[in-house]
């Protein structure tokens, strides 16, 4: 049953994510790919949507995946609502319960010696997961590997061009103009460049 599946998968994601929204990206990616809920391309689009909508990225992603899978069930549009609600509650439930227990019993939970020690191991792993996912996504977007038939690496010229333009504009904004580049600005810039480059046939 898809709803139970959604609940358990997002409960797991909520439980094993440390250090904020970006820490969730490797786990969500793994989950949607493994269950065949989304392609990698759809997954990256979803992150783009999460960046431009308000609220924590974790909730955005849970709601989106839940809606997509729920509406594919026999319940239709209501299934979509139910699926997104279930996934969203599941993803915040571990945080809510752990934090509640902490608030009630231990004030200095974070200063417990062994918890601190365990985190010294968890933190580098969590950051390594984000880094490797970022690099995998980078190579998949810019140099997609064709695994049907003989394995071959292709160059996605349009994407490489847009990516370099984005990086260039980002460097100008942050290093030359000394201003901050907001994620929403970066996503909108990407959308604009996507339109311009494809319609003018720049490349």
């Amino acid at each position: 049953m898809i709803f139970l599946r959604l609940f358990l998968e997002f409960l797991k994601i909520g439980l094993f994510t440390f250090g904020g929204g970006y820490g969730m990206i490797p786990l969500v990616r793994e989950t949607v790919l493994k269950n065949g809920w989304m392609s990698e391309s759809e997954f990256i689009n979803m992150i783009g949507l999460s960046e431009v909508t308000p609220g924590p990225i974790a909730i955005n992603m849970a709601t989106y995946v839940g809606s997509l899978q729920g509406s594919a069930s026999s319940l239709g549009a209501f299934g979509g609502f139910l699926g997104s609600l279930i996934a969203t509650i599941a993803v915040i439930l571990p945080a809510f319960i752990v934090m509640l227990i902490f608030s009630i019993f231990l004030k200095k939970f974070g200063e417990q010696k062994h918890i601190k020690n365990a985190l010294k191991g968890i933190n580098p792993v969590a950051i390594a997961l984000i880094m490797s996912t970022a690099l995998i996504l980078l190579s998949d977007v810019l140099f997609p590997i064709n695994t049907t038939g003989s394995v071959s690496v292709s160059f996605n010229r349009t994407s490489i061009f847009i990516f370099l333009l984005i990086a260039f504009i980002y460097l100008i904004i942050t290093k030359v103009l000394k201003k901050k580049a907001h994620p929403i600005f970066m996503i909108c810039l990407g959308a604009l460049l996507g339109l311009v480059v494809n319609y003018i046939n720049l490349i």
């Binding site: 992150i47 970022a134 996504l137 810019l142 990516f163 984005i166 970066m186 996503i187 959308a191």
Partner: peptide
């Protein structure tokens, strides 16, 4: 077409956070 560019921006943002 817009989302071809959005994908590039998303990858850039995640890389930036990772680094």
């Amino acid at each position: 077409y817009a989302f071809i560019g959005v994908k590039c921006a998303v990858v850039f943002l995640i890389l930036r956070v990772a680094f």
